[in-house]
Every structure is written in C-alpha cells, then in structure tokens.
Nucleic acid binder design. Structure first.
Length: 416
DNA sequence: TCTGGGGTCCTAGGACCC
DNA sequence: TCTGGGGTCCTAGGACCC
C-alpha cells in the first residue's frame, strides 16, 4: 500500500511568529497587515530580508535581497530584527500539535516538517480532511497559518505545499503530476537551482514536464548524477523514508561571519578566526565529537572565494588546536586582499569517549581540555564575554562569533 | 542587486601506492 | 629507467537546500 506523506510549511514563518509575539505582548498593530519584513542584524553592515509580509510583496520585496535594496523599493517598509529563540519555541509548539496525529515526524527546517500519516489514516480516514484538521488547529491555537502538501512521497508532498499559500491544503498524487506539476517552470522543482536553470534552458527544457520528457542519458552527460536525480524528481520518483527521530548524525560544524569593517591586517584576521574557533570549539565539545579536519574560507571585497583545509591524524576538540590549524591555513591562503568574510569549519568526526593520548603531549593536552570545559561551563552560565582572551580586549572584535548554540536542531539542507 | 549564515553532497585533479 | 593502469586519499571548488 502507498504511503501518505504530508509536508507542512509555515507561511512567512519568521514574520508570522514575530507578529504574534508582538500582539501577545500588548502591541495593537499586526505587522502582517502592513508592508513589513524580518531583516538581518542591523548592527552588521549589510543585512538581508529573511521574511516578508503579504503587503510587502506588492512592492516586490524579495527574500534574500539586501535591506538597502528593499528600502529603495519601499521606503516605509517596517523592519524587525530576527529573534531566533522565539522561532524555535514557535516551531516546537507546532510540532507538539502535529505529534497528536502522527508519530513519524521529520523536522526538515525550523518552519517545515514531513509527516508520515499512513497509519493515522486508519483513524482519520481521508488524508485531505486530516490535513485540514491539523491546519485549523495550528491556526486557532497558535495564530499562524500553514500550507500542507499531501502525496505518497516526500518530494511530491513538498512540491504540493508550494502550490497554494497561505492557509491551504494541496495534493499532488502521482496521477495528478502531469496536470499540477509538469506545467510549472523547471526552477520550481526541488534541487533545480540558479546554476542549473540556464543549463537546462540551453537544452530546450523550460518546464518540469520538459524535464520529465527529456533524455536521461543527455542529462547525465551534462549534469552528471545531479541530472539523473532531477529527472527522477520530475517523474515524482523519490523513496526516502520520513526519518522518525531527530537523531541524526552531524557531519560538520562551522561558523562564519561578514565582518563589520574591512579587515586589512593579519592580526585582525587572526582575532576574527580565533573568535570563530571559540564558537566552533564549544559547539564541537557540546556535540561530543572530536574532529580530524579543519577548514577555513575567505571572501574578499570583490566577493572572490577561497578555501583551504587540512586533515590530521590525532583528533581534537580543543579550541587552541583548532585555532592553530586554522591560523596556519589562513596564513598560507591569504593574498593580502581586503577581507570581507571569514569562516571556520570542522568535519570528519569521531567519538570522543576514548581519547588517544600521544606520548609527547599527553599531559598538557589533558590540562587544556579541562580548561576548555571550565570555560564552556562559565559561558553557559553567564555569556560569551564572561571569560575573554586578553587579545580581544579593546580590539572591537567579539570574543566569540557565530550562531546556533545548544537549542539548535539540524537543518537538512539539500537532502530529503 | 553591493549579495547572511547554517549546512550537505558531488566532482575533478593530483599525490601516492601497488 | 621508463612505461601503464587501478585504487584510494586528499583538496578545492561548486551546486543545492533553508
């Protein structure tokens, strides 16, 4: 028997949640009713639009464009800074309601989840009716609207939730694909992005239907395995299960930042990298893993990207050791150009429950680990600046840089 | 268009080994 | 010494997602 899968997507999530929070805290204006947006941190030099209200759409405000660009289009645009702790709470509240109807829930991002309701239908009968029940409960109890896609796999459910917004339930069962999905522009298909659209266009492929009817051998030749993937998606073929728990294996941890001022000196760059390593190191220790690979990335003021990475044999979870490698990589990579953005990432994890102690540095390593632990605890109890390396004092650079602390749940990015 | 920050996976090319 | 080929690891960069 076919499965029945829902994809539930919060409409203008950040903006809706922000609006409700303000109404609950005594404001009378519902910012959903005026041109408004949740936008990047105003402290940074160039924030972007993360979510917009429906009245803001009239001004052609786009998600992802810079605040300056948006204000040019609509000078009266009301801007609210993001409030991530609120979004996590709002997201959790929604999932609590969904849990009453199904046990198989996969949180795909903060505002989206997949639900396998195959078994629930024995109790609730019609899938569209069940979707409407969930949608209405979220609306009346939590105050925001969702769009729900209904189908027999995750891909088609996800495509379905995009068909109608806000506050809607749409189906794309396999028999409805040719009518509901094939006429759409090919860029609407999951996994067909900015770089792929023109390549497909050059082959005369403009709609999802064109893609479905194209020759997979030719797609494979130009787009490699990605070509086969999207050809299968165009046919609605996708078989991954709704992963029940949120227990998934983290593959890498990274933080990066666009620096509030141009960085021209090695010394400043080193401080920013140390600040990123502090955050990456704390998150790594929090995850319970050790890393065997450290990488850094640089973006200069011409938006040119460069990266370096290094693999090593002795795993570590120490800020100091991560920083040593990151700094060395930076020094080898940097060409002296003005720096706009720096990133540090660790990956290639292994468990840290047994520690390989090398003969040479065993004792000092152990001491350093204990120091990291104490710092983590103090920072958990107070905040990042509770304990600060001397080199940061008066530098204008924060002692820790980057987001996503303890409360994060993983976003799956481009895999279903 | 003056373009954030968090991730994942894939590919090509070079190094190195047998 | 020069030659070929297969396998694996490492690295840089690019593509996609939210």
């Amino acid at each position: 028997m076919d499965k029945v899968i829902f994809h539930i997507d919060v409409n203008s999530a950040y903006l809706s949640w922000e609006a409700i929070y303000r109404l609950q805290h005594g404001e009378t204006l519902d910012i959903r009713t005026i041109p408004s947006a949740v936008g990047g941190d105003p402290k940074k030099r160039h924030g972007i639009i993360l979510a917009k209200s429906i009245p803001a759409k009239v001004f052609n405000i786009q998600t992802g464009e810079s605040l300056m660009e948006a204000l040019k289009k609509c000078p009266s645009l009301y801007l609210a800074p993001p409030r991530y702790e609120l979004y996590i709470k709002s997201s959790n509240a929604m999932v609590e309601i969904i849990k009453e109807y199904a046990s198989q829930i996969q949180r795909y991002s903060i505002d989206e989840c997949f639900v396998d309701v195959t078994d629930s239908l024995k109790l609730f009968g019609d899938p569209v009716e069940l979707a409407n029940i969930i949608k209405e409960r979220i609306k009346t109890e939590l105050g925001f609207t969702v769009s729900i896609g209904v189908s027999s796999n995750k891909l088609l459910a996800k495509m379905g939730s995009d068909l109608k917004k806000p506050d809607a339930v749409s189906t794309i069962f396999p028999l409805e694909m040719s009518e509901k999905m094939w006429p759409l522009p090919v860029g609407d298909l999951f996994m067909v992005g900015r770089a792929t659209i023109p390549k497909l266009g050059a082959m005369g492929i403009y709609t999802i239907g064109d893609l479905a009817n194209s020759d997979p051998e030719i797609l494979k030749f130009t787009l490699k395995s990605h070509g086969i993937l999207i050809w299968n998606y165009a046919h609605g073929r996708e078989y991954s299960p709704v992963k029940k728990s949120n227990h998934l294996i983290i593959k890498s941890i990274g933080n990066s930042t666009t620096i509030a001022f141009d960085v021209e000196t090695r010394r400043e760059a080193h401080l920013v990298i140390l600040s990123l390593c502090e955050m990456v190191g704390m998150r790594l220790r929090d995850s319970g893993y050790m890393t065997r690979l450290v990488g850094i990335s640089i973006k200069n003021n011409l938006f040119e990207h460069a990266s370096h990475q290094e693999k090593f044999n002795l795993p570590t979870d120490q800020t100091n050791e991560i920083y040593e490698v990151a700094r060395r990589l930076f020094d080898a990579l940097w060409d002296g150009s003005t720096i706009r953005h720096l990133g540090v990432r660790v990956s290639e994890f292994c468990e840290n429950d047994f520690t390989q102690i090398s003969f040479f540095d065993g004792i000092s390593r152990d001491k350093q680990r204990k120091l990291d632990q104490v710092v983590d605890i103090l920072r958990g109890r107070f905040d990042a600046s509770a304990i600060m390396r001397g080199s940061f004092v008066g530098s204008g650079i924060r002692p820790m840089t980057g987001g996503i602390g303890e409360d994060d749940f993983p976003m799956m990015g481009s895999i279903l």
